[in-house]
Amino acid sequence: MADFNASDLTCLRGERLVFGGLSFAAKSGDAIMLRGRNGAGKSSLLRVMAGLLAPRSGALCWNGENIADDRAAHQSRLQYLGHQDAIKPVLSVRDNLRLWGQLRGVSQLDAVIDAALHALDIHHLARITGRYLSSGQKRRTALARILIGQSDLWLLDEPTVGLDRESCAELSQLIADFRATGGIVIYSTHIDLDVKNPNILDLDDFAIPMVEWLTEHADLNDDTNDSANMQHSVSPQEAVQ
């Protein structure tokens, strides 16, 4: 029984505050759907969960252990699908996938790749080089990647982009199968993906107005004349309200 949760996450991109005070919890078999307007930080949150991005504050824990303490363990248990498909135009679909299996130390790699290709209905493309794939086929190849090797956590950033209706149904089926074996799926999507009773995490709830955050955090202004300036500039706005 795995358990993945976080408390009080704050994420800063450059100098922009993306979200703050975010918490979530998931256990084996759960799915979390991330929702929010553009720029609400869905991709950033998935990258934080993957460990690609360090949160400004707060911690993510897997079975009670901070993921920052053992990055390699966390990375070997997760599969991440980003915006980009990472497909090399000069390598065949099979060769593209092979690298990721080798890096995860998968045994009987060819059989595993065959199974993944069948699952996404692209087995006939195995020998085609990347440059001849349509964008939907590329996306499906990228999805096949997450089936290679054992994993307990899927982080899918807009997995449906470029997929047709049938492929979306296949993806739903894959997610259902993965959850049935005890996996946790966290995904963001713009269209409805048929996933059974997902927990919904609306990132708009965690958007903190920059003004509030600035006044809370003393490292951009202080209790001296700075905050006096701040007060001065905030007050007219409050007066309007």
């Binding site: 100098e15 920059m210 706005q237």
Partner: peptide
């Protein structure tokens, strides 16, 4: 400069100029 950028991002300047 950073502080100004942070304030600009917060949208505070717009309100001030309105004011």
């Amino acid at each position: 400069e950073r502080r100004i950028r942070a304030l600009q991002l917060s949208g505070m300047f717009d309100q001030r100029s309105d004011q």
